[in-house]
Simulated assay, not measured.
Amino acid sequence: MDFNFDSEQNDLREAVRGLLERAYGDSEVRRKLVANDPGFDEKTWSRLAEMGLLGLPFAEEHGGMGAGPVEVAIVAEEMGRVIAPEPFIEAVVLAGGLIAAVGTDEQKGELLGALAEGTTIPAFAHAETGTRWVPTASAVTATQAGDGWTLSGTKEPVPNGARADVLVVSAALAGDGGTGLFLVQGDASGLTRTGYRTHDGGRAANVRFESTPAVALGAGGDQTAAIERALAEARIAYSHESIGAMDTALRTTAEYLKTRKQFGVTLNRFQALTFRAADMYVSLELARSTALWASMVQDAGGDVVSAADRARLQTSRAGRHIGKEAIQLHGGIGVTAEYKVGHYTSRLTAIDHLLGDGDWAADRLAAGVAAHETVDPLGAPYTG
């Protein structure tokens, strides 16, 4: 399997890296930016739009670029490399992905075109208190009202929910109708959004609906399967963002070991510390290959849900390992607010708990083990 990027993909990577390095090459710039609402730079968001990145995975007839999962992975990794706070995955991959998957042609043309231009930011309001990463909804209910719908209930946390111009909302349909998807405008009546800052510097919101008018996304009906797939595609993209963050954390740690002196010699002269850094590298490369494989499965139209679970498990384990080691190998400076290693670990932790953590992914994978044939390790057919 070829994991090398072609020339156009390499050009994309270099262009995105150049833009984000100019914006967030100095970690102090990011730290000051995320201290104020909306938690990201609107000018950088506009520049991402100018480069065509906000319409990257969408069809050209809807204002997009017609690129695939690998190109999305490249952008996500570069975002993670500087832990850029712009909601690329939340808006483009997740909310935009749902609109592209189930929306009508009119909805796609209007919303995806505006997203690609950077003038509209959508957010997916799905998580509910008391649930753990399921593709269904129960706390928000949808009631048909004439030709439209109204929503009632609460969603929390909704990443970037306070800033979003339009919300893609999952809601329980009457009877046994499953979970539907609806569009709610940011200025709709009966909509209350309370935003707050998350530990990694991002933004989330408590979103309440009180007979809030909504429009069905697409043809309506049960959209559970579409939600499951969209969540899986977002998990893969988050895996690539984690790869970028882990790569920077490892490089920063390696440079520190080469320059920081103890007992008259640099820390990389201590074999135990060098071995620990080598273990970090192994974790990173295992996670990188698994995430790239998952993107290629998605591109080929394979079992994206299972591939996403595998990528999430590997990147979760690697992120925890690399984050902890990066802080410990830096010593006391690693936990200070002024130094970036702690911020990378915080972001890796936040990603791990978005849409399902590593233990959750392991449980899902373990539940399907019985569906696979048993193979004798010595090569003889199993006859038990």
Score class of each variant (00 low, 15 high):
Glu233Arg: 14
Leu48Gly: 08
Ala311Pro: 10
Gly103Lys: 04
Asn268Ser: 14
Ser289Pro: 01
Asp279Ser: 10
Gly161His: 08
Ile322Asp: 04
Ala23Ser: 14
Met1Ala: 11
Glu21Lys: 09
Ala226Ile: 07
Lys340Pro: 09
Trp133Gln: 07
Val297Asn: 08
Leu181Asn: 05
Arg17Met: 04
Val169Ile: 08
Asp303Val: 12
Pro57Arg: 05
Glu285His: 13
Glu78Tyr: 03
Met296Trp: 01
Ala76Gly: 07
Leu355His: 11
Ser170Phe: 02
Val16Phe: 01
Val297Met: 10
Leu53Tyr: 05
Gln314Trp: 01
Asp247Val: 09
Ser46Leu: 09
Val375His: 10
Glu42Lys: 13
Leu48Thr: 10
Ile243Ser: 02
Gly178Glu: 10
Ala145His: 11
Arg208Thr: 05
Val168Glu: 08
Ala308Val: 12
Gly319Pro: 01
Ala23Glu: 06
Arg197Lys: 15
Pro87Gly: 05
Gln185Lys: 12
Gly302Arg: 08
Ile121Asp: 04
Val70Lys: 05
Thr315Ser: 15
Gly221Gln: 04
Thr252Ala: 09
Val93Thr: 11
Gly332Thr: 11
Ala287Arg: 01
Ala272Trp: 03
Glu255Trp: 03
Ala300Lys: 12
Val29Ser: 05
Ser7Trp: 00
Leu183Val: 09
Asp37Tyr: 10
Ala67Tyr: 01
Gly190Cys: 11
Leu94Gly: 01
Ser289His: 13
Ile327Thr: 04
Val168Phe: 07
Thr224Met: 05
Ala272Val: 15
Gly356Thr: 00
Arg13Phe: 05
Leu111Pro: 01
Glu117Pro: 02
Gly358Val: 02
Arg163Leu: 06
Ala337Lys: 11
Ala174Asn: 06
Ile322Leu: 12
Ala308Lys: 13
Phe124Pro: 01
Ala49Arg: 05
Leu355Tyr: 13
Asp299Ala: 08
Ala204Thr: 12
Leu54Ala: 08
Thr253Trp: 02
Thr266Tyr: 04
Thr349Pro: 01
Thr104Glu: 07
Thr120Val: 15
Ser295Ile: 00
Leu231Phe: 09
Val305Ala: 14
Phe275Glu: 14
Thr252Pro: 01
Gly358Asn: 04
Leu19Tyr: 09
Pro159Met: 12
Asp363Pro: 01
Val70Tyr: 00
Asp37Gly: 05
Arg229Thr: 13
Ser289Met: 10
Arg320Met: 11
Trp360Val: 00
Ala95Tyr: 03
Arg193Phe: 03
Phe263Pro: 00
Thr119Ser: 15
Ala49Cys: 10
Thr44Ala: 10
Trp360Asp: 09
Gln314Lys: 12
Leu217His: 03
Gly244Leu: 03
Phe209Val: 06
Tyr382Ile: 12
Arg317Glu: 14
Ser27Tyr: 04
Pro135Gln: 07
Ser138Ala: 12
Met65Ser: 14
Met79Gly: 07
Ile236Pro: 02
Ile327Glu: 09
Ser239Met: 00
Leu48Arg: 06
Arg347Val: 13
Thr374Tyr: 14
Ala59Val: 02
Thr131Trp: 00
Gly113Glu: 02
Ile351Met: 12
Leu286Tyr: 00
Asp2Ser: 14
Leu354Val: 14
Ala234Glu: 10
Thr290Trp: 02
Gly161Arg: 06
Leu181Glu: 03
Glu28His: 13
Lys324Met: 10
Arg312Met: 02
Ala277Leu: 15
Ala380Val: 09
Asp359Asn: 14
Arg317Ala: 15
Glu14Tyr: 02
Phe275Met: 10
Lys43Met: 06
Glu42Phe: 06
Tyr382Pro: 08
Thr143Glu: 11
Val70Met: 09
